[in-house]
Design a binder for these strands. Structure first.
Length: 127
DNA sequence: GTGATGACGTCTT
DNA sequence: CAAGACGCCATCA
C-alpha cells in the first residue's frame, strides 16, 4: 500500500479507490484512508497526492488540514480551487506497464480495472 | 467475540 | 441530481 502511494509522480494524484484497486481490494478505499491516517509525520510518503474520486480533498480527523493538503498540491502545480475541488482527470496518475506488472495482480482482474483506470505504455509525464 | 468507526466508493432510490 | 444504503477491512472499546 505504501509502496503504491510512494510511486505517484509529482504533480499527479490518485483516488483512494484507485489505490485500493491496485492493492487488489476494489472496495477497500476506506482502508487506504485509514492507513494513511496512521502514517503521521512520515513525510516520505506523498499522502497529499491521494484524494477522493470526485476531485475533492477529503481529509478528516488528521493532524493535517485540508488547507495543508491544498497547499502541498498547489506547490506541485495542481490547481485546487477554494472549494477544495479540482479536475482530477487532468492530474490523475495513469500507471505504466511496469507499474502494473509490479503489482503482480491476476490478469483477469487487471483487465477489469484497466477499463476503469487505463494504463499507458509510456511513462507518465513527470515534470 | 461482538459491534462501532473511519483521509472512501459505488449502486440504488 | 441528491441522499442513503451497503460494502470494505484494519483497529479499538
Amino acid at each position: 500500500m505504501i509502496r503504491i502511494v510512494r510511486k505517484i509522480p509529482r504533480g499527479h494524484v490518485v483516488s483512494y479507490g484507485q489505490v485500493a484497486l491496485y492493492l487488489g481490494l476494489p472496495r477497500a478505499a476506506r482502508e487506504v484512508g485509514w492507513t494513511l491516517n496512521q502514517l503521521g509525520e512520515n513525510t516520505l510518503i506523498p499522502w497529499w497526492r491521494v484524494v477522493n474520486n470526485e476531485g475533492r480533498i477529503s481529509i478528516k480527523g488528521s493532524r493535517y488540514s485540508a488547507d495543508d493538503q491544498r497547499k502541498l498540491l498547489r506547490k506541485e502545480g495542481v490547481m485546487v480551487g477554494d472549494d477544495l475541488t479540482f479536475d482530477i482527470e487532468k492530474y490523475r496518475f495513469i500507471p505504466d506497464l511496469k507499474f502494473i506488472n509490479d503489482l503482480k495482480l491476476d490478469p483477469t482482474y487487471l483487465e477489469m480495472i484497466s477499463q476503469k483506470v487505463p494504463y499507458n505504455q509510456l511513462l507518465p509525464k513527470d515534470s
